[in-house]
Design a protein around this nucleic acid. Structure first.
Lengths: 338, 338
DNA sequence: ATGAAAGCGCTAACAA
DNA sequence: TTGTTAGCGCTTTCAT
C-alpha cells in the first residue's frame, strides 16, 4: 500500500510548477497565484500527498513536538495534569508526547534522549523530587516544572499551593474543635509532601498547638499505605481525634482501617484528604478533601512553556495555584470539647 | 547556551576522520579501529556531541517513535494499558508518544497527522468504539487495536475477554443463589459494553433465566452514573438481589446509592464490578470484582506492534486475555433461597 | 508570482 | 578499516 510515499516532487511534477511553489501552497503563503494554488491543491488531493513532518522538522530546526515526563501515567493527579497540558498544547498545533520515568536513571536517560536528540521543542517535567536527583535540566530546551518548588535557573514552574492545602486541611479540623491531629504524609523526598507538611505545622503552630512527631506517619500515596498508617497510629495509644491524609487514596485506605477497627468516621475520628479524586465523593463516608485543579495546572504549564519557547524571556515565572476546601461527611465537629 | 549545536561534522573535524567513521562509532559498528573509536569517543565527550534524532530519522526513514491514541489519559484502565505498552516499547529502544482524542474528529485528525506525516513508525489505538466511527485506519502504518473486537483488515488486536468477564460476574452471582440480577452497563456504543453484556446474558441463559430488560441500565463508566443507575433500579419496584456493574467506578457509585437508601450490601444486595482498580479493595464493603490485567494487555499490544512492524507478517493476530474473579465482601450467598 | 540553488545532520551505498 | 558520493523531503535564501 505504501510503496513509495508521494513527495513534494511528485506533486510539483504533476502540477508543472516548482517544489517551492508546492511548499508555499501547503504553508499557506499568500504570494501564490490563486489559480496555481487551486491547481496544486487539486493535485495534492489527487495524489493523496501529505507533507513529511520529519523532513519539515529537519529543515525548520524544530519538531512541533513537546514532551512531558512524569513518574507514572496511572496516578490520577498526574494524568489530569497531562490531560490539561495536552489540551493546551494541541490547541497551538503542537503534539504532546507523554512519557513516564518511574525511577531516576530512566528519567535522566529520557531527558537526555529527548532533548539531546532534538526530538522535542520543549519539555514539561511533572513532580520532580525535592532532593536534587531530578535536577538534571536540559540546556537549550525550554522547560517547565510542574508540581515542584521553583529551582534555580531559568526553568519556569507551576505548582499547586501545597503549603496552603496542608494548612487549609489543618485549619478546617481545628475549626471543628480538633486539637490532636495526626498526619499521613507522602514520600518524604517529594516537594509536595514537604509542603503539605509545612502547611500542617503552620496550621497547628498558628493556634499554639505543639505538634506531636509520633502522630506523623509516612506513606507512599497508595491506599494501602494509608490503611497501614492508621493501624500504626491507633496502635500508638496516643490520643488523636482527626487525621490529615496528604492525598485521597491514603485517606480512603485510612477509612477502611477505621472501619475494620470499629472506629467510626466521623463520630470517633475525622478524616481529611487532598486532591478531590472522582471517587472521593462516593466512598463511605464521602470524603472531606482539599480540591486541586490539576487540569488547569497542566494547561498553565503549557502556557508557560510556549511563553518560554517564544524566546526573549529571561525571568522565570513561578506560579502557585490556590486550593479549595470541599467539606463532605468524613469530618465532624468535636462534641466533647475538652 | 545552545548557539550552534555540535554536529557530526565538528566531531569529524576534531577527530580528523570522516563523518562516516563518526557515524559508525555512534552506531556501534564493529568495523572501526578500536583506537580510532576511542579517539572519537573522547572527542564526542569533549565536545558534548549528541546525535540529532531528527536527522537520523530522516535518513533512516523511520523515527523510533510509536504513538498511542486513547480516548483519555485519566481513566485508570487506559492509563494502565498505556503504562504497560510504554514499558514494552521502551525496552526495545523506542519511544511511546501517548496522546488522547476525546472525540471522533480529534481522533481522525490525530491519526491523520501522526501517520500521514511519517511522525511515527507504528500506532496503538486504545478502545475504539463499536460503531465504525473509529474505523479510520492508517494505511501503511502498522497498527494494533487494544480493547476492541477484531476489525476487518490486517490490524492486529488484543483485548480482554469481556464476554468471559461478564459471564464470570454473572455466574458468581448465580452460584451464590442470585436469580434476579440487574446490570449497569457502559456506553452502549462500546465493544466492551456489548461484550460484557453478552457475557451477562449468556450467564443467565445458561441457567435458564430469562433476562429482564428493565433491569439493565446504561451508565457512562463514571461513579455518578452508577450511583444514579441504582436509584433508578430501586425506583422500578422490580425485585432483584444483585447488581453487576460493568466497571468498578460505577459499582462504587452504586454502593453509595445503596448506603443512602438504607439497602445493605451485601445483606440486601450483592454487587460485582469489573477491573479491580486499586481502590476496589478499600471501599465499603470491599468490592468483589473481575480482575483485568491491563498492564499485560498493553505490553502484549506492543509486542504485536513490533511483530507487525518487522514486516513479513500477513495474518492479523487477535488475542483475548482471560479475566479472573476476585471475591471480596460486596457479594454474599442469598439466604432466603426461594 | 515563481524558480534555482543550497543545505538541515545524518546514513547508505559504493570505493579505496 | 576508512573515505567518498549521494541523497532522505522539505524550507530557505536569493534571483528572476
Amino acid at each position: 500500500m505504501d510503496r513509495t510515499r508521494v513527495t513534494i516532487r511528485d506533486v510539483a511534477a504533476q502540477a508543472v510548477v516548482s517544489r517551492q511553489t508546492i511548499s508555499r501552497v501547503i504553508n499557506g503563503s499568500d504570494l501564490v497565484n490563486p489559480e496555481t494554488a487551486a491547481r496544486v491543491h487539486a493535485v495534492i488531493a489527487e495524489l493523496g500527498y501529505r507533507p513529511n513532518a520529519i523532513a519539515r522538522s529537519m529543515s525548520r530546526g524544530r519538531t512541533q513536538i513537546l514532551a512531558c515526563i512524569s513518574p507514572n501515567l496511572t496516578d490520577h493527579t498526574f494524568a489530569s495534569i497531562i490531560q490539561g497540558a495536552e489540551g493546551a498544547v494541541r490547541a497551538q498545533g503542537y503534539f504532546l508526547m507523554s512519557t513516564s520515568a518511574p525511577d531516576v536513571p530512566t528519567f535522566i536517560a529520557l531527558v537526555h534522549e529527548l532533548t539531546g536528540g532534538a526530538y522535542v521543542d520543549g519539555l514539561v517535567i511533572v513532580n520532580p523530587f525535592a532532593d536534587d536527583r531530578y535536577c538534571y535540566f536540559p540546556s537549550g530546551t525550554p522547560t517547565v516544572l510542574v508540581g515542584a518548588r521553583p529551582r534555580e535557573g531559568v526553568a519556569d514552574s507551576v505548582a499547586l499551593d501545597d503549603v496552603a492545602a496542608g494548612r487549609m486541611a489543618t485549619e478546617h479540623l481545628f475549626s471543628f474543635g480538633h486539637r490532636r491531629i495526626a498526619m499521613i504524609t507522602g514520600p518524604a523526598a517529594e516537594d509536595c509532601t514537604q509542603d503539605r507538611s509545612s502547611g500542617y505545622r503552620a496550621g497547628l503552630c498558628a493556634h499554639g498547638i505543639v505538634d506531636e512527631p509520633s502522630l506523623v506517619i509516612e506513606g507512599d500515596w497508595s491506599p494501602l499505605s494509608g490503611y497501614r498508617a492508621l493501624y500504626e497510629l491507633l496502635a500508638l495509644d496516643i490520643p488523636f481525634s482527626a487525621v490529615f491524609a496528604q492525598n485521597d487514596q491514603m485517606a480512603i485506605g485510612a477509612l477502611r482501617a477505621a472501619r475494620e477497627l470499629g472506629v467510626r468516621v466521623p463520630g470517633d475520628l475525622s478524616v481529611v484528604g487532598v486532591d478531590d479524586i472522582p471517587l472521593a465523593a462516593h466512598v463511605d463516608p464521602p470524603l472531606t478533601t482539599v480540591h486541586q485543579d490539576f487540569t488547569a495546572l497542566g494547561a498553565e504549564a503549557a502556557r508557560l512553556l510556549f511563553r518560554s519557547m517564544s524566546g526573549n524571556v529571561t525571568v522565570a515565572e513561578h506560579i502557585r495555584w490556590a486550593p479549595k476546601l470541599i467539606v463532605r461527611a468524613s469530618t465532624q465537629r468535636l462534641e466533647w470539647l475538652g
